[in-house]
């Protein structure tokens, strides 16, 4: 098993800084969903991680902790994540993306 980044939707949707999406070295790995916080009554959308592309460098954790000071991202073992986004389940929209969350470990 290996570590991937996991973003806490409650903390992220309260702030909308989008810094992690700009500092991830992998393309299209941290994506942004404008609607993520709406159903929970939060103000903004939230970033989320397409875990099949995450290499586990934890650069986003440093950026979230030290630059944004939000502490919303943690590194988690991939089999400890009940639900996560995978690249195949990401749907691109006009100004945002959405992802169907499924179990990241198949079988």
């Amino acid at each position: 098993m290996y570590l991937v980044a996991d973003i806490n939707v409650e903390i992220c949707a309260a702030t909308s800084c989008k810094l992690c999406t700009q500092f991830c070295p992998e393309a299209n790995t941290i994506l942004y969903n404008n609607e993520a916080g709406k159903e929970k009554g939060l103000k903004y959308g939230s970033a989320y991680v397409a875990v099949d592309r995450c290499k586990g460098c934890a650069q986003c954790v440093w950026v979230c902790d030290n630059m944004a000071k939000h502490h919303a991202i943690k590194m988690v073992m991939i089999d400890q994540l009940p639900n996560a986004a995978l690249t195949d389940n990401v749907i691109y929209g006009e100004k945002s993306t959405t992802a169907l969350l499924t179990s990241p470990v198949v079988g």
Binding site: K18, T21, Q22, F23, C24, P25, E26, A27, N28, I30, L31, Y32, N34, A47, R53, K55, G56, C57, A58, Q59, Y92, G93, K95, S96, T97
Partner: peptide
């Protein structure tokens, strides 16, 4: 622009560079 990152498909795809490489960023 960079502020829209995460909401459109990027030209760069998956690549074999090391995890956390600043050059990739």
């Amino acid at each position: 622009t960079v502020s829209q990152m995460g909401s459109f498909k990027e030209i760069l795809e998956e690549h074999p560079m090391c995890a956390g490489c600043a050059m990739t960023l």
